[in-house]
């Protein structure tokens, strides 16, 4: 059963059509790489999944629940959007850590705020906070940052910041974790540590959608590759198929250009 199904997703900014009917599905535990030139709509697609953009057409279905259906008359209120977007996590290109919080606080803040309304929190505030903090530490340990719990973002390298951002997203246990060019803002020597963390997540079968320009990484880490161009999915398949035996002319050109530049 697919954990995520996207059907006919469209997004228009004014008269500009950025997504022209995107269909795909993703199995639980699968990781999908989204590749394509800048402006092909990859990032917009991720932003639609995370409700940062409002699609102008189509459906998003998670675990057989339709969480967004543009054609239905019902508009979602803020609370529903908040609840729905928690199916997804998003790691940004530019990290977007909260500068006034330590590494650990960055990871635990959202969870603490979510728990605040629960009965358990009202009764055993201290235990709940302790539990959240312990979980935060565990997750930070997984991304190799247990030595940096009390550092502030400006004291960390870009690679470390991005790993904190990954831990922050993992903390809410999203069904699908999305990455928007997670290494594009990093110095080349720092991309490795971030890619290693994502690779580890793939090995432990975290369901992921990864927008990336790192073709070798996409090939290694993904179960499924989508190549997008001008708002449509041009080609899809296993990494083998898309990278080794592309059938579409546009895919061939894109890959050729990419590997020539390297």
């Amino acid at each position: 059963m697919a954990i995520l199904e996207v059907k006919g997703l469209e997004k228009q900014f004014g008269s500009l059509e950025v997504l022209k009917g995107i269909d795909f599905s993703l199995e639980k535990g699968e990781s999908m790489a989204l590749i394509g030139a800048s402006g092909s709509g990859k990032t917009t697609l991720l932003r639609c999944l995370n409700f940062l953009e409002r699609p102008t057409g189509g459906q998003i279905i998670v675990n057989d629940n339709v969480i967004l259906d543009v054609s239905s008359q019902k508009t979602l209120n803020e609370n529903e959007i908040r609840k729905n977007r928690l199916h997804f996590g998003l790691v940004f290109q530019s990290f977007n850590l909260f500068p006034q919080y330590t590494t650990l606080q960055n990871v635990t803040l959202a969870k603490e705020l979510l728990e605040k309304d629960t009965e358990d929190y009202k009764k055993n505030k201290k235990q709940v906070l302790d539990r959240i903090r312990e979980e935060g530490k565990e997750i930070l340990d997984k991304v190799g940052l247990s030595q940096k719990l009390d550092d502030y973002p400006h004291q960390l390298s870009g690679g470390q910041q991005q790993r904190v951002a990954i831990a922050r997203a993992l903390m809410l246990h999203p069904d699908i974790l999305c990455f928007d060019e997670p290494t594009s803002a990093l110095d080349p020597e720092l991309t490795g540590e971030v890619l290693k963390v994502i690779r580890g997540l793939a090995e432990s079968h975290t369901t992921m959608v990864i927008v990336t320009h790192e073709m070798k990484f996409a090939k290694d880490v993904s179960d499924q590759v989508l190549f997008m161009d001008q708002g449509v999915i041009v080609e899809r398949g296993t990494p083998e198929q898309v990278f080794e035996h592309p059938t579409e002319e546009r895919t061939k050109q894109f890959l050729q250009r990419y590997f020539e530049e390297k």
Binding site: L52, F92, L97, F98, A110, L113, R168
Partner: peptide, 12 residues
């Protein structure tokens, strides 16, 4: 990005 980071983490 600061607002968006908060949004995707489900904050009001």
């Amino acid at each position: 990005g600061q607002y968006e980071a908060g949004e995707v983490l489900g904050m009001t």
